[in-house]
Design a binder for these strands. Structure first.
Lengths: 238, 238
DNA sequence: GGGCTGTTTCCTGTCGACAATATGTGCAAT
DNA sequence: ATTGCACATATTGTCGACAGGAAACAGCCC
């Protein structure tokens, strides 16, 4: 790499935006798996890349650490948090629960104008599926469910759910490399059913759909993992 | 205040412990309401108090901010997060849900030796109630429920629940100033029932007890708030 | 007397430098 | 060949200093 790389931004950023922009960019890269789990994040190298001092970098890393996206090894470097497949079952439990709770809550508080935001997200999701754009699909799916959570009106649920969905984005990113598009279309239909149930303020039906939707996703990812782990291992290679 | 105050620690702390200790101390003081909600936290003053540079202070404040315990006003000071009484109903919903989920989970995975930790916490709680020590009571109650959550074995639930319980400590701190001790004794009994149900691996009974326990606490705090808000306002005073 | 404007002051956001610690490397001894 | 130790290196944790913004204050105009 040439020295005097012009850094990411040449415009002299406004005061206070340094940490924020680094946080946003790194977060996006981690969630999109551009930065592989386990990658070392060197403060000096990052400060050179972003053209700023180590201080804002450190603060951004600290925030990422609080989000659980990076792991800080004391007196050593910080690395992108690894994906622990052993913790997947608890993850699925938590995800399913939050699907249910937020969908139920939304069904209890549904108002016509609040449905607009949800429909908008659903339209974006459908468009991403049609375009076979895995990245946009994952993004839109998250926004769709967060919109439902916001309608449910419980900030504690929304925050926790958003965090779970973000963590899931990295797993989905692994998964959708091999996705066959029959299933995403099914998700679109399921989303439509959920919208209808919420709008009808049918709490129990919303709940059942949330369970079904969650089961669908969980089974999907488990199948993927099983397929992946099932690859024959070449014992002669060692 | 005299200048050259000897600071909180005279021993030259080990590398890396600065942020940690400041975080721990401030966190305790915020949760114990020693630092009132809305109190300004001045970085310079804190650095003088703890006898270290502003850098570790800043990092500690950043971590507290991620925990939602302080609010950072850009380019201005950071303040201890205020308690928003309007968000209490969502809070109670979330708390009840986590009581249920963790208790159910514990009942599903109960093992004899795991019950030891829970019993130990329960003993501490009972001792605090007997001693009329409100602070120790709140602390032990939190540890009791976190121990149950850990037995449930879902790290996502444990983290979220612990955060909710911490936030609740500040509310309880308001409440237990006026506590009459009949009710804490009832909590001790309810805890005992929960332990028995978990140990018997009776999931449904554990669930019912968790609901009952949560309802008890919620009603309690709501009564307190109603009583407080019900104070006659002296209109002539203005 | 009240409202607007320029100034002052305080505090934060950012910077570059130094010190401490963990890892990797080379050498010697068993 | 492997283990142990000393050294070198790389990267973090901490520090003091400077600059930029926002609130507080004073002065001026109406």
């Amino acid at each position: 790499m040439a020295k005097n790389e012009p850094a990411e931004t040449d415009i002299p950023r406004t005061r206070g935006s340094g940490t924020q922009s680094v946080y946003t960019i790194l977060r996006r890269e981690i969630l999109a798996m551009t930065l592989a789990p386990g990658s070392p994040l060197d403060e000096v190298r990052l400060s050179e890349r972003f053209g700023m001092s180590r201080t804002p970098i450190r603060e951004a890393l600290l925030r990422l650490s609080a989000d659980g996206l990076v792991t800080t090894l004391p007196n050593r470097n910080t690395i992108v948090a690894t994906i622990d497949f052993a913790s997947l079952p608890p993850y699925f439990d938590a995800l399913t629960l939050m699907y249910r709770v937020t969908t139920r809550g939304a069904a209890m508080r549904a108002t016509p104008q609040a449905m607009g935001e949800i429909r908008k997200r659903q339209a974006e999701f459908a468009a991403a599926v049609a375009a076979h754009d895995a990245f946009a699909m994952i993004e839109a799916n998250r926004e769709f469910h967060v919109a439902i959570a916001e309608l449910a009106g419980n900030a504690y649920y929304t925050t926790f759910f958003a965090r779970l969905l973000d963590e899931g984005r990295r797993i989905l990113r692994l998964y959708y490399r091999t996705f066959d598009d029959r299933l995403p279309r099914q998700y679109v239909d399921e989303h439509e059913e959920m919208i209808a149930a919420i709008e009808a303020r049918d709490v129990e039906r919303s709940d059942r759909l949330a369970i079904k939707h969650a089961e669908q996703i969980v089974r999907q990812i488990q199948d993927y993992i099983a397929r992946d782990l099932g690859q024959p291992i070449d014992l002669a290679a060692s």
